[in-house]
Structure formats: structure tokens, C-alpha cells
Amino acid sequence: MTPIRVVLVDDDAMVRTALSMILGGDPEISVVGQAPDGRAGLSVIAEHCPDVVLMDIRMPRLDGLSATEQLVRSGSPSKVIVLTTFDADDDVMRALQHGADGFLLKDTPPARLIEAVRLVAAGQSILSPSVTSQVLETVRGAARHGCDTSRSAARERLATLTERELEVARAVGAGRSNAQIAGQLFLSVATVKAHVGRILDKLGADNRVQVAITVHVADLDG
């Protein structure tokens, strides 16, 4: 099996070293490049074409959110996990809006970090539990303050799904992985992946986080 290629972008050399040791210790992951800021990171990413990028937010010259936005706009196939010591609302929402595929805190346990890299490389999105709660609460708050049209629009989009696709979408909204959804709905993982792909297409979503947000907006009471 070809290892998952990873690039680390963080202005703290000790953090890069620690991440490299954690990820490099997994036989399915290979750290192929590192950079101390967003601008250098874009060059390293262009050179190595990694599967996954771990991107710090607060860096000199070019911050991680701006670098992520530029990377996504360039059409790069590399997936981005934003990694930070903070979980501020604005940072979370900006990261997701700019196309990040995951958002994890730097105190994430090593095993969870490795799992996140694997999941994102496989096309899934990942958020730490505290970040997931934060994102959904932000969405709920916006919907409660006069966004009835958003709720209606979300429900209309979900109405385009088949009954099975809606079941899968709800499970995605609950934060379940493809394997967990497969076990819950008695499907194969491959079938779940196919359903998720169709859901993304029908909802016009870029990743699972956006699917989750649509589900939660549509399911609001009132």
C-alpha cells in the first residue's frame, strides 16, 4: 500500500518535530515535507503534492487560513487539516469556509491525529468534538435569528435525497464515520461511500462538514 503523503506547515519547529515523530511512526503515513509559514508551505505543497496537509493557523508571512484558501482556489487535490491551539468561533468557520477538510486542536491525542489523517486522506472530514459542537451551535444560533429561509432551503435540498441517502446524511450529521454508518445501517463501507458521494453532489457540498450543517439547519424545531 502506498503511504499517505503528508506535509507539515507550522512556525514552531518543535511542533513540526513532534508531529513528524507521531505520524512518521505509522507505516501507512509518510511525512514528505515541512515548512515554517504559509508562503513557504504553498511552495512545499506544490513540490511534493501531498495527500494531506497539517496547517497551523497563526504563522508569519502568510497565515494558515489564507494559505488554505489559496491552496483550494488553485485546484490542488491536497486535503487540509487545520491544526491549532485555539478553537475560536471565527477561526473554525473561516477554516471551513475556505475549504479545510478538518479542524483539530494541537492537544489531540496521537492516535486520534493519525486516525484523522487517514480519514481525511480517504475523503472524509474531521473535527474535534469541541469544534463540532461549536460549529453546530453557531449554525443553530444563526438559524434562530431570522434565518427561516435558510431552514427552508436546507429542507428543500435534503428533499432531493432518496430515503436511504437521507438516512446516511443524518448519520453524517451525527458525526459518524463511514464504518460506523455501515454498521448502523447494515451496509458495506463501499456502499456508504457511494451514498456519501451522491449526497455531496445533490447538496452541492464540498465535504461532510457542510452536509452535517445542512442536516442540522433543516432539522431545527420551530
Rank of each mutant, 00 (worst) to 15 (best):
D91H: 15
L71R: 13
H48L: 05
T68Q: 11
L19I: 05
T68R: 13
T17K: 07
M21L: 07
G24T: 07
S43K: 11
L65P: 09
E47T: 11
K79L: 00
V72F: 03
S78I: 10
S20P: 00
V9Y: 03
V92Q: 11
G25C: 12
A95L: 12
A67D: 10
V53M: 03
L19D: 08
D51A: 09
V52P: 02
L62G: 13
E47K: 15
V82P: 14
V82R: 13
V44T: 13
S43H: 01
A18R: 15
D51H: 12
R73Q: 12
D11L: 03
G38H: 10
D51W: 03
L62I: 10
V32C: 04
L83I: 14
S74W: 07
I45V: 12
G75D: 08
Q34F: 00
P60N: 04
E69V: 00
G64A: 12
I45S: 03
D91I: 07
C49S: 13
R61M: 08
Q70W: 09
G33M: 08
R94V: 05
D10P: 02
D90S: 05
G24Y: 10
V15M: 04
L54W: 02
F86H: 15
P77F: 07
G41V: 04
S74K: 10
V9D: 05
I81M: 03
I22W: 02
D51F: 01
L83E: 06
D56T: 03
T68H: 11
G24I: 08
D63I: 04
L42T: 09
S76H: 14
H48I: 02
L42A: 10
S30L: 15
A67C: 12
A40V: 04
R73S: 08
L54S: 01
R94E: 14
V44Y: 04
I22R: 01
T84H: 13
L65A: 08
L71S: 12
P60K: 06
T17Q: 06
G25I: 10
L19Y: 09
R16N: 05
P50G: 07
V82N: 13
R39F: 09
V92D: 08
A13D: 05
S43M: 03
Q34I: 05
I45F: 01
M93C: 04
S76R: 12
I22L: 02
V31S: 09
I22G: 03
S76A: 15
C49T: 10
R16Y: 01
A88N: 13
I57F: 08
G64R: 09
Q34R: 12
G38K: 14
M59E: 10
S20V: 02
C49P: 00
D63L: 06
S74F: 06
S78F: 05
S74D: 05
P36F: 02
A13G: 00
L71A: 08
S43T: 10
R16D: 00
D87G: 15
I81R: 04
V72Q: 14
I29F: 15
P27E: 15
V82L: 09
P60I: 07
K79C: 06
R58Y: 06
R58S: 11
T17D: 07
T85R: 11
R58C: 03
L54R: 01
E47Q: 11
F86G: 07
G64Q: 10
V15W: 00
S78R: 08
L83C: 10
A46K: 14
D89R: 06
